[in-house]
Design a protein around this nucleic acid. Sequence first.
DNA 1: ATTGCAGCTGCGAATTGTTGCATCTACATA
DNA 2: TATGTAGATGCAACAATTCGCAGCTGCAAT
Lengths: 139, 139
Amino acid sequence: MSNKGDILNKLTQQGYRITPQRIMILEAVEDAENHISAEEIYIFVCARYPNVNISTVYRTLELLKELELVTETDFGDGRVRYHSIKKGHHHHLVCQKCGGIIDVDESVFAPLRESLSGKYGFEADIHHLAIFGTCKKCK
Amino acid sequence: MSNKGDILNKLTQQGYRITPQRIMILEAVEDAENHISAEEIYIFVCARYPNVNISTVYRTLELLKELELVTETDFGDGRVRYHSIKKGHHHHLVCQKCGGIIDVDESVFAPLRESLSGKYGFEADIHHLAIFGTCKKCK
DNA sequence: ATTGCAGCTGCGAATTGTTGCATCTACATA
DNA sequence: TATGTAGATGCAACAATTCGCAGCTGCAAT
Ligand SMILES: [Zn+2]
Ligand SMILES: [Zn+2]
Ligand SMILES: [Zn+2]
Ligand SMILES: [Zn+2]
C-alpha cells in the first residue's frame, strides 16, 4: 500500500471517485521531499492543472487523512503540514529557542499510548506530533 | 503566584502596563469554570466594559500565554480555548467518535518527558495537550 | 500636578481555513 | 455507448485570527 496505484484502488474500493484533482494532489504529497502545506500543494497542482480550487485541496487532504494515507502536523508556525504515510510514523521535537527540529521514531510514544490504554481504555491516535520545548544546545 | 494581584505585579515587573482591558480579560479567564474561548471572553468583558476590541482580547491572551499565566489548547472544534494556570497542568483525551473528553493529570506524561530528556536532551514543554483517539465505550 | 513617551488600544483590512450550494462528472448499470 | 445519480468541484460567503497604523494612556520622572 505504498504506490499511487494502490492508493487510487483504496479510494475506489471505499466508494470514492478518482478525479484529476485528487490524482494531482496525491502526487504533490507523495513527491514532496518534506512536509508540505496545503498552499504549497495548491501552487504545485495549479502549475500543471490551473483552475483547481484551494478548497478542493483542503477537502482532499481531509479525505486522505481520514483514510490514513497522509498525516497532518502543526509545527506551530500557523500552517499545518502534511506527509505521505509512506514515510512512516514519526514525530518531531521543535526547539522554541533555535527553531531546530529533531525527528523521533514513534516508538518513543509507545509507553504513553500503552499507559493511556491501560489506565483509561483510551486508544490514542498519535501518528505525527510536534512537541515543543528546548533542545540540548539551548538549555 | 495565584491571585489577581500577584499576576498584575508580574506584569508590572516585566514592564507591561496594567489596563482596564487586561484586568477584565484576566478576570474572565480566572473566573471561568472551564476552558474559555477568545469569543466568550470578549462577550464577558463587553457586558461590563463595552467597546473593548476582540483583537485586544487576542493580544492579551498571547501575552498571558507568554508569561505562562494561561495555557492554550486546541480541542479540534475550530476554536482555541484557554485555561488559567491556577487550575494546574493537565491534559485531555478527546474521543473522535462520541466527542467525550477525559481529563488526565500531567504525571501521565512524565515518562515521555523523561525519555525525551534522556535520549535527546530535549526538555519538552508539555502543559496542556488535547490527545485525539477513541474512548473505551466507542472502541 | 504636569510631562514624555513606550506601550496599548481600536479600527479596519488582510489572511487562513471552512462551508453551503448550484453545477458538474466519474462511473455503475443497462 | 447512453443514462442516472451519488459524489466531487468551483465559487463566493463566512468564521477565526492576525496585522498595520494612527491615536490614546499608564506610569515614571520631574
Ligand atoms: Zn513528519
Ligand atoms: Zn534549540
Ligand atoms: Zn484543560
Ligand atoms: Zn467515545
